[in-house]
Simulated scan of single mutants.
Amino acid sequence: MRAAAGIDFPGTPSTVLGWRGDVTLDRPPRPGFSVSGPYGGLVVAPLPGGRFRLVGLSPDGLTTEWPGDLTLDELRQRTAAIAGEDFGLRDLSWSRTPRPCRKPSAPLSRPEEPPTPSADL
């Protein structure tokens, strides 16, 4: 996308594409739910209005080619493969998120000296 627009990009192309979807869940998992395993990783976070954001990474996301938006059924399949169930997932509003591999424009710096603990603690 940047190259097509003529925008300089001081880094390397993404080699991993994650996915996210804002959905309604009929059977939401416990608060703070996250899971990872051989079929990928998934985090479920609450949003306002009773909706949830699913953020995941699947083995087929190890690519440099953007495969397009997932359908509701594909999101259900990925969620069930990773978490063992689809949580009654429905009403998808979609966004797919690449994970850029970009070097920072300036080197990261560290403080000269670490903070010293107070003797009063």
Rank of each mutant, 00 (worst) to 15 (best):
A4E: 14
D60R: 14
G11H: 11
P117Y: 00
P115K: 13
D73W: 02
E74Q: 15
P59R: 06
E85G: 13
A80P: 07
A45H: 04
T116Y: 11
L47N: 15
P104E: 01
D26R: 10
L89C: 01
F52H: 15
R2S: 12
R30W: 03
D91F: 09
V35C: 07
D86K: 00
R53D: 04
P117G: 05
P67K: 10
G40V: 08
L62A: 13
C101A: 09
R20M: 11
G18R: 06
P48S: 12
R90G: 05
A119V: 09
A5L: 14
R99Q: 11
D26H: 04
G18F: 00
A119N: 07
A80D: 14
P111C: 01
G32I: 05
G41T: 07
M1W: 09
L42C: 06
A119G: 05
P59D: 04
I7V: 14
Q77D: 15
P10Q: 01
G84A: 07
E112P: 02
P100N: 05
D26C: 01
T116N: 10
G84K: 12
R27M: 02
D73R: 03
T79E: 00
F52T: 07
I82Y: 09
T116M: 13
V16N: 06
L89R: 01
R102E: 07
R102V: 11
